[in-house]
Amino acid sequence: MSFILGEKENLTLEDLRWKNRIVIYFPAKHHYPQFDLKSLEDELSERKIIFLSIPEHIQSNTAVSFDKNYLNALRENLSSSIAEGNWILIGLDGGIKLNKKGEPDWDYIFRTIDSMPMRQLEIKRIK
């Protein structure tokens, strides 16, 4: 899967603004699920989504790299439910569009993104 940023290291969310939508998953403490991102590759790529699961070791659908201290700060600032885990959807504009408990609900995420005005424009351009 190719992204505009390639393999740049030590990114921030600001570096991804206007280039990618981001789904960040903060697993519950001592819960480290593995995601079958290969099966979601087409949907993630089409919607320009970078997925980041941030437990002890990051899991992602791209080769982007973040500083460990930056990841810890993200967890502290954006994780609303450490006991149960949560995920957030960040739009192209850098704003938080969804913040939900549990593991990512990909159907809900895709439907939400597809209903956004910028995504509607993307869909029209594709057709």
Rank of each mutant, 00 (worst) to 15 (best):
L89E: 05
S80G: 14
D105G: 12
H57N: 08
R47M: 10
D42S: 15
E84R: 09
F3E: 02
L71G: 02
L78S: 02
N99C: 05
I4L: 13
L16V: 13
Y108R: 04
D15A: 06
Y108V: 00
L71E: 04
W106F: 15
F3C: 03
T62S: 14
R21A: 04
I49N: 01
A83R: 08
S2V: 04
D15T: 08
K38N: 15
A28M: 00
T112C: 07
D105S: 05
S45W: 10
N69K: 09
G95N: 13
I82R: 08
G91D: 12
Q34I: 07
I58P: 03
K8T: 04
Y25S: 10
N20I: 01
G6C: 05
L44M: 14
I88N: 10
D67K: 15
E46G: 07
I113Y: 00
E14M: 02
R119M: 15
A73K: 01
I49C: 03
F3D: 04
E84G: 10
I113V: 13
I49T: 03
E103M: 12
F35E: 11
F26A: 06
L40H: 08
I113E: 00
I50R: 02
Q59E: 13
E103Q: 10
F35T: 01
R75T: 12
R47E: 14
A83C: 00
S53Q: 12
G95P: 01
L121C: 14
I88E: 09
S39F: 06
Q59M: 11
N72Y: 05
E41N: 05
R119A: 15
Y70P: 04
K29D: 14
M1E: 10
D93G: 08
R111C: 14
D114R: 09
D42F: 15
F51D: 08
K19Y: 07
E7D: 10
P104I: 00
L37A: 07
G94P: 05
K8A: 07
S65H: 10
L5C: 01
I90Q: 11
K127H: 11
G94A: 05
K68V: 12
I24Q: 02
K29I: 14
W18Y: 03
L92W: 00
S60W: 02
F3L: 03
Q120H: 01
S39H: 04
I49R: 01
F110S: 10
L121R: 09
N86C: 15
F3R: 01
G94Q: 11
H31V: 13
F66A: 05
N61F: 00
R17S: 12
I88S: 09
N99A: 11
H30P: 05
L71C: 05
P104G: 00
G91W: 10
Q59S: 09
S80M: 12
K29F: 14
K97M: 09
M118H: 00
K19M: 04
D93K: 06
K19A: 04
F35C: 05
E41G: 08
Y108F: 11
I22V: 13
D114G: 09
